[in-house]
Design a protein around this nucleic acid. Sequence first.
DNA 1: TGTAATCTTTACCAATTGATCAAAATTTTC
DNA 2: GAAAATTTTGATCAATTGGTAAAGATTACA
Lengths: 210, 210
Amino acid sequence: MARPRAAETRKRTRIQQEKEDRILDAALDVFSAHGFRGSTIDQIAKAAGMSKPNLLYYFRTKEAIHRLLIGRLLDTWLDPLREMNAGGDPLSEICSYIRRKLEMARDYPREGRLFTNEILRGAPHIQEEMSDLKSLVDEKAKIMRGWMKDGRLARCDPHHLIFSIWATTQHYADFDVQVRAILGPARSGEGRFEDAARYLEKLFLDGLKP
Amino acid sequence: MARPRAAETRKRTRIQQEKEDRILDAALDVFSAHGFRGSTIDQIAKAAGMSKPNLLYYFRTKEAIHRLLIGRLLDTWLDPLREMNAGGDPLSEICSYIRRKLEMARDYPREGRLFTNEILRGAPHIQEEMSDLKSLVDEKAKIMRGWMKDGRLARCDPHHLIFSIWATTQHYADFDVQVRAILGPARSGEGRFEDAARYLEKLFLDGLKP
DNA sequence: TGTAATCTTTACCAATTGATCAAAATTTTC
DNA sequence: GAAAATTTTGATCAATTGGTAAAGATTACA
């Protein structure tokens, strides 16, 4: 190889491990705040505490960083939905799904915004993942329809039910500044997530009771 | 004025009227799809069917276009909430609010995405409007609390109730590609908004019944 | 119809930005 | 401790992009 780059050679060194992690964390900060095109390599490099050429030694292109982040994200983003199983009690399955999604919005807001950014742009980098997503959602929708048939869940469109859970929970990551502006400083502590959880649980429980 | 620019002189001509409208429409297309920094003047000019310098004859800067769009947007975006009045029946007031917001997501998805873009970036251009927003929401929250006290609406946190309506309706504009991908081509017609309306109405009605 | 105002185009500039290269500095390995 | 491998830096490039200048084309109006 003419000009060796990190990770193109034998195995990852200690420095590679460290620096790559720092870069990805910095990039998550910057991408989630400014979007892909709104972010510059310089910004990311600065946030990671290194020079631009140095960063480019670890990742060939800006897109390579973005791709890796998006890929990682999708891997874990759907875990809560996967965990919903037909065997459990419908309403408590849905409640814990809501709780888990809300926890993700609280604990990983950057990832959430990165995802929303990508979707807002028309999901250009995750076309195939979209069809995997459809399969998963269809599968879970089928389970829900089973619950409805058994009279254990209110009859409704399961796809839109899932959308509404995504929307209400993701809102607390994507619209964070708006939520804080409206709740005011006094209620903008971490407690707002507990208030949200309480409210959403009530809404969906009573709204979906058979 | 050394180099006169459109609208800096006496009154708007026919051509100014036409071209400015075309530019704003094109800019809404481009900004809502790519975000502010992701959009170029060239792109907007091309979409508006004119050259870049020609466009810049009508708007001094890219930011001027964006500012105008954002300003216009906020003017109308909150109208549905303003219309919610204490005199009506609580549940039907909330239902028509949901319906109106859903109609906006259907009829003005570009505006919706423009707004989400702005909030995602931390709302840098609409700081003051945010406090106006807070006043409006607080006022409506007060009305809702009155309804709850009278036993005409289920007790819950009215701020989070409003958030949940925003989130579930806006979702159909912002996450449109995802919604379409999951519903599949057969159910991605305009009918999806009616399905959504039916579902949301049921959810909120049963979820908020006293 | 002629003239003043408005509009459009061509050519251009300076700053930013993604990316490269080769050499210097550092770390790892034997 | 020296050689080899890896990491860092500084200089630089080409493309993109926001914006300007000035001359030419068109339109409105008396």
